[in-house]
Simulated scan of single mutants.
Amino acid sequence: MIKGGRVVVRDPETGQTTIQLVKIDWPIARIPTLAPHFGIGMMGSNNRETQAVPIIGLDNSDLYPNAAPEQPLGGTGSFASTQPPKLVKLIAGQLGINDYSTILNWELELYDSQPATVGGMDKEFIFAGRIDDKLCSWAAFMALLHAKQEEDEGVIKLVALFDDEEIGSLLRQGARGNFLPITLERAVEALNDANEGSTQIFGPGLMGQTFAKSFLVSSDVTHAAHPNFPQTNLAGHSPRLNVGVALCVDASAHMTTDTVSMAILDRVAALSGCVNQRHMIRNDSRSGGTVGPMLSSAMGVKAADVGIPQLSMHSIRATTGSLDPGLGLKFYKGFLDNWEKVDKEWHM
């Protein structure tokens, strides 16, 4: 696996602090699994703190009594002095840093070094790392770039991408924060200038009306029908690869979709030439949950959960259909282009 991330560095001359991105161009880490002969499985039962530690190098100095141990770098009290010296040298070398004490902190992660590839006898699959949830993020962002821009449109088209969803979203950049409502508030305030003949005064009432007239398509990858574990999905309501996005419904409210939002998005699909699938979560199971309920409940906005199907969720390499990124883009573009028209049909 490759290590990459961001490094906080201070300029020793000016004192200015900057963030620099770093990426090691070769695999420097591996989490060695334990052979099944020992009777200790690596399929979810291993301890993440003590039994899933990546190895990034060897230290056999204990075999040589006269070997001098590596000394900490950066000086006493520095961040670098708390890190493995070889790793400090490697990161500093990648960034052209000579004074290790100027490294104030870093945030590094491991990721699969193998590039994505197509697979299957007809090349109908994509095998790749980090499909969750760069798949929906890419499709939604590309849809925004290609959405229509008509002068008579009266809506704001927006795609919001959040971090930290897998750990609860309760950080500044997470969906449970107020970044999205504040951004929308600033946009509405900028567009509402009372000095230019506006009949509405900006304030909580106007924002409430804005939220009430909006629609949120909460998007995260969802579980495709699994040929080896058919019991995990509800028969007849399980999405297939290379067909279309899935509207996700959970009776336990881990999804925000309801009958009205499903009808709205089915109408969008009809206008866009898309096929909407259904993913009904079994009552004796639970979904992983999405940011949809937290955002829709915080803003009071109509919403639905929509997912592009995939297999091997949360695996280091997952699987989706080779057509699915494009099908997702087609649906999201259809929503951005047709939401205003569909909304008016509900108020005629």
Results as ranks from 00 to 15, higher is better:
50 T>K: 13
317 R>W: 00
270 A>F: 05
253 A>E: 10
115 P>S: 12
90 L>M: 14
159 V>R: 00
14 T>N: 09
322 S>E: 03
223 H>E: 03
16 Q>G: 05
31 I>N: 06
122 D>S: 10
210 T>L: 07
189 E>N: 08
336 L>S: 03
276 N>Y: 13
306 V>I: 14
273 G>K: 07
83 Q>Y: 01
239 P>W: 04
347 H>V: 12
291 V>D: 14
170 L>D: 15
142 M>I: 13
98 N>Y: 08
345 E>T: 15
325 P>W: 01
286 R>S: 06
44 G>T: 06
348 M>G: 12
265 L>N: 13
295 L>R: 02
88 V>M: 05
172 R>H: 13
51 Q>H: 10
87 L>R: 08
129 G>N: 13
41 G>R: 08
131 I>T: 04
162 F>A: 02
330 K>C: 10
53 V>T: 15
288 G>I: 10
96 G>I: 10
8 V>D: 03
314 H>S: 06
308 I>N: 00
111 Y>T: 11
202 F>D: 01
93 G>A: 04
227 P>W: 09
265 L>Y: 05
70 E>Y: 04
206 L>N: 02
245 V>C: 11
94 Q>R: 15
76 T>R: 13
139 A>E: 04
266 D>E: 15
197 G>T: 09
30 R>Y: 12
276 N>V: 15
139 A>F: 04
145 L>S: 12
147 A>V: 11
110 L>F: 13
347 H>A: 13
334 G>Q: 09
161 L>W: 09
208 G>F: 00
347 H>I: 10
92 A>C: 15
95 L>F: 09
18 T>S: 14
12 P>I: 09
238 S>D: 06
192 N>S: 15
186 R>D: 11
310 Q>F: 02
115 P>G: 07
264 I>A: 07
150 E>N: 14
43 M>I: 09
168 G>S: 05
319 T>C: 14
78 S>Q: 11
220 D>G: 07
26 W>P: 01
322 S>G: 03
184 L>K: 00
12 P>M: 07
109 E>Q: 13
218 S>A: 15
93 G>I: 06
134 K>L: 09
90 L>F: 06
292 G>C: 04
18 T>L: 05
181 P>I: 06
322 S>D: 02
211 F>G: 01
179 F>A: 11
62 D>A: 07
122 D>L: 08
234 L>G: 07
284 D>W: 15
157 K>N: 12
107 E>F: 14
144 L>H: 13
62 D>K: 02
1 M>Q: 02
280 M>S: 09
80 A>C: 09
111 Y>Q: 08
251 A>T: 03
255 M>F: 12
72 P>N: 06
148 K>G: 10
